[in-house]
Design a protein around this nucleic acid. Structure first.
Lengths: 202, 202
DNA sequence: CCTACCGATCGGTAGG
DNA sequence: CCTACCGATCGGTAGG
């Protein structure tokens, strides 16, 4: 009798378990033996599925980067929509990625510095591009007077910082659903950016 | 002829250098040999000044916690002042601690989880108390209608998250002074919280 | 503050 | 996927 096919590939299981450990203990403080034990196998056996510890980190960090970009592009595809609407969609898309896999998000946000070159620089370039995309949206909103902020760069940093703190306190079993959190965060953070006229027409 | 007294005690030098390394590479990925080399001595020699690697982390984390509390208490000492004013002072005090030593702040924010018990739990209790103090201030501001926010807990988290992102982008040699950054951040973050009447009277 | 060293643990590999 | 192992490195100590 054949054993049932695994629900996820072994490699995907390794990534998932490693991500949880990287988040809880940090990349450097997580040992491959610990990871193997958690998966019910021996340390050496991991290497028939992966090439190295860093390879896992690489996949997690760049996979999340892709998810963030995909969300942003879908949110801002309707270029004729009001900037405030596009920004709201982008915020909600960002929050959905953060809540869909908060462990991977935490690793994306804090463990990327353990990537070795050139991956580390490539990662930072992607992150900068993502920030620039938000900043550009906010700048256009200010230019068309749909948004108001004393400094677009500051506003962008503060906005993303508020969002990125989410994995630190989000609990999947909390009383708010991911969508409710996304709405509420968007309300609050847009509230500070909308100018009065726009706020009234909302 | 006696050698000149060191500008800082050796222990303080060790703490400073270790803090910079902990920030750059993370606590677990920083070796005592690396730290010793940076200070121009041998690894074993460190232990005539300190008891352990974790002792350094402990001092940094709890020292910063003390600095944050001291700033908050000074900022809110004038209990008869408008809540918005107290909150502004508290924000600016927080930013001044972050900019005065951004390396130690980054360690305080991200490396505390490498503390072993019971220090780790003690640290988290302090951090919770600090957050609660901000939340309480914001809640009182909402109660007296000086501030406006759909959810005080959310507003507190978003506020502190925005502030705590600062060590990630602050450069001591940047074009803005710490005080200018403090003012600007306070303007922006209070802007979203002040209700219209308070905003007009400002 | 150094020399010399300890036991423990690390990421990863060879061979099956 | 396991057994058995590699060289390297870790935090920390003894004795001076």
């Amino acid at each position: 009798m054949a054993t049932a096919a695994p629900l996820r590939s072994r490699k995907a299981q390794i990534d998932r378990t490693a991500t949880a450990l990287f988040r809880a203990r940090g990349f450097a403080a997580t040992s491959m033996r610990e990871l193997a034990t958690e998966l019910g196998l021996e340390a050496g056996s991991l290497y028939s599925h992966i090439k190295s510890k860093e390879e896992i980190l690489h996949r997690v960090c760049f996979g999340l980067a892709e998810a963030f970009f995909a969300g942003f592009e879908a949110a801002t595809a309707a270029t004729s929509a009001p900037i405030a609407t596009q920004l709201r969609q982008a915020i909600e898309a960002h929050v959905r990625v953060l809540t869909r896999d908060s462990a991977a998000s935490a690793v994306f946000l804090h463990e990327w510095r353990h990537l070795s070159e050139p991956a580390r620089s490539e990662f930072l370039a992607l992150r900068d591009r993502y920030e620039a995309a938000f900043r550009s949206l906010i700048q256009r909103g200010i230019a068309t007077a749909e948004l108001h902020a004393p400094d677009a760069a500051f506003a962008t940093l503060a906005l993303l910082a508020s969002l990125n703190w989410l994995p630190a306190w989000y609990r999947p079993d909390g009383k708010l659903t991911p969508d409710e959190i996304a709405h509420r965060l968007a309300d609050q953070l847009l509230g500070g950016l909308l100018n009065e006229r726009a706020a009234m027409s909302q």
